[in-house]
Structures are given as structure tokens and as C-alpha cells.
Simulated assay, not measured.
Amino acid sequence: MGNKAEKRRKQILKAAFKAVSEKGFHNVTLQDIADYADVSKGVASYYFKNKEDILGSLLEEITENIYIREHAAISQEETATGKLQAYVYAAFASPRDNRKFYRVYLEFLTQANHNEKFRQTNEKFYENCWSIGREIIQLGQQEGTFSDIDVNKASYTIRALIDGSLIQWLMRDNDDLHDFYRDNCFETLSNYLMNKGA
């Protein structure tokens, strides 16, 4: 794909993200996405088959970007505890970024049971998240920092606590609590992985 075509696709996906965040999944039309992108409906249809194709591509892009960012964050650290903290802190990017992402992501999750592409993209996202968790846990066990717990179960628990903490923070609608939930998430996970109890 040429540079111009890739740039145009990204413009349309960015517009789709904004449209879904402001209007909700069901209310967004192909025309809305074109309007947000400041292009004609025909241009949007040239780069994507339909609205579902745009939204499916959007879900792939935002989940892949999150994985890339989170994996890059843990790669900067040497120790398992450092990697765990980097992972949690990358997931808790900022109140603004987390609110934007989860408002759109939760819209997609409501559709996942009825849309095979969304379900598969979400499964791939979680597989990526769990791979980060496994990497951290295995290093911690090699170091003797983390207890000898089941690596797969623990990797599921890490992501569940991160997402659950972020969703609870989002529901409370208070930016001042963002650091509290981030730090509490990291502390709880550290205690769990070291088998110290919560």
C-alpha cells in the first residue's frame, strides 16, 4: 500500500475512533465517519468495504498499538518487578488516554459476541497481553522474586486486574483517582506474584 493510501486509511480510522467515542457504536454511520475524516463517503468506501470493515480495522489498530506500547515499556526494564511496574504504568497511560480508549473499547466488547472479526481481534489482543504477563512472571520465577505459581493463570490474573481497575476508575469519573488505582493495581499484583497475600 502506498504512503498516501496508508495516510488516508489512518485518517479515516482516527475519525472512526472519534465518532464512536462521541456517538456510540450503534449510532455511527459511514457518513458520520466520512464527515469526521473530512472526506466524502465515496472516499471512505474506496479504502474500506463498509462501516463494519472500518470498525474492525479500527479495533485491530488500537489493540495492536496498545500491545506495542506496553511491550516496549517492559523491554526497557531489567528486573521482573521493574517490568511489572512498567506494564501497569503503560496500561494506566493517562486519564485522558484511558478514558478515550475504554469508551471506544467497551463499545466494541458489546458487539464481540455477534461479530466474529471483533471476537478474534479481541482474543488476539488478550493473547498478546497474556504473553507480556508470562514473560514477566517467568523472569520473576527465574530471579526467585515471584513464587512458583501457574504462569498462565497468573498472566490472566494480571490483565484482569489491570482492566478491572481501569474500568472501575472510569466508572467513578474522577481523574484524581487514576494514580490511586494504578498504584493499588501494581501493589496488589506484586503481593499476589510474591505470594504475600493482598
Rank of each mutant, 00 (worst) to 15 (best):
R103C: 09
S57R: 10
D97N: 14
C185H: 02
S190V: 04
G164Y: 10
E22K: 14
T145R: 11
E22C: 03
A160K: 07
K153T: 12
L161P: 00
S155E: 05
I68T: 12
E127T: 14
A19L: 05
K7R: 14
N122K: 08
L84R: 01
N152V: 05
A16E: 07
G144R: 07
Y192K: 01
S21Q: 14
A154K: 01
S45W: 07
A198L: 13
I167P: 04
E143W: 09
Q141W: 09
K23W: 07
R172D: 15
K51E: 09
Q85G: 00
Y156E: 12
E61L: 14
F48E: 10
D175L: 01
K153H: 13
E70T: 13
E123Y: 11
S147Y: 13
G42L: 07
S131H: 08
E61A: 12
A160S: 12
S40V: 00
Q138K: 13
K100A: 12
G42P: 01
E6M: 07
K4P: 00
S21D: 05
T110R: 15
R8L: 11
K153Y: 11
Q111P: 08
N27G: 01
S94W: 11
L59T: 04
D35I: 00
R182Q: 13
H26K: 11
L106G: 13
N113M: 14
Q120E: 15
E64Q: 13
F101L: 14
Y156V: 00
V39G: 06
A112W: 05
S147H: 10
Q76D: 08
R99A: 09
R96Y: 06
Y156F: 13
A154Q: 10
S40Q: 10
Q85A: 04
N27A: 07
D53N: 08
E64N: 12
E6T: 09
E123L: 11
M194N: 08
Q141C: 05
R134D: 12
I33G: 05
Q85D: 06
R69I: 06
L109D: 06
P95N: 03
A80D: 03
Q142E: 14
T29I: 02
S165C: 02
A19D: 02
K14W: 00
A154P: 09
F186Q: 11
Y192S: 08
Q76C: 02
L193F: 15
V39Y: 12
Y192W: 05
I167K: 10
E78H: 08
A93S: 12
F17L: 07
K196P: 00
E123I: 06
Q11L: 10
Q142H: 06
R103V: 03
F186G: 08
H178V: 00
R8M: 12
F125D: 03
N174V: 02
Q11K: 11
L139K: 10
T110E: 15
E143M: 06
I66P: 00
D183Q: 14
V104S: 09
Y192N: 02
I66G: 08
K124L: 11
T63A: 09
A90I: 07
